[in-house]
Amino acid sequence: MPSLRLQHLRARHVGPIELNIDAGECVCIHGASGSGKTLLLRAIADLDAHAGDAYLDDQRCSQLQAPDWRRSVALVAAESHWWGERVGEHFEGEINASWLQQLGLPEAAIDWQLSRCSTGERQRLALLRTLMQNPGALLLDEPTGNLDQATTYRVEQLLAEYRRQRQAAVLWVSHDSGQIERVAQRRFLLRDGRLAEEERGLRCT
């Protein structure tokens, strides 16, 4: 039951930030562009140099090998990037067929050529790419940014199921206040490098 804890985390103009996300909890962050939301997620994933530390349960980021940490505390970037020709090359094993279906993708998607995928298809596939590694904490940077309303709901639903089943801690950056109402148990505004908790909206689950 992994919980994510940030202690005095500081990266460039963001922080110091203290935050606890319980196992199975979803916390949303919003804020103006340039406020450092992406920077914060990158620092938690240890892709950028930072002060302070992050813990997954009692495992400290700086004491784990960086790849191991990033496997357990997985960042899904706003834009998806691919290095191979076909979708399947980017997955270590199979793709969970029911997840594909849930996101409105056919099973044959594993053989698709990436150059022919739409931005929205790639975004969903990138999410699955990360989920297939079964991370204990998820750092999501606008995971539905390029999706229509119906597909957005599908993604929200899949992520909620994953979170409950895996008891994963989820940190979700979103611009959409409706989405924040739907998915978050707690919501924060990132401004001037600090997190301010806001009135809780509707509970999800």
Binding site: D68, R70, L75, W82
Partner: peptide, 13 residues
């Protein structure tokens, strides 16, 4: 850079 960092984020060495 974005591709390399995506790979790092997926836990690749």
């Amino acid at each position: 850079r974005p591709i390399i960092e995506s790979r790092l984020a997926l836990g690749q060495s």
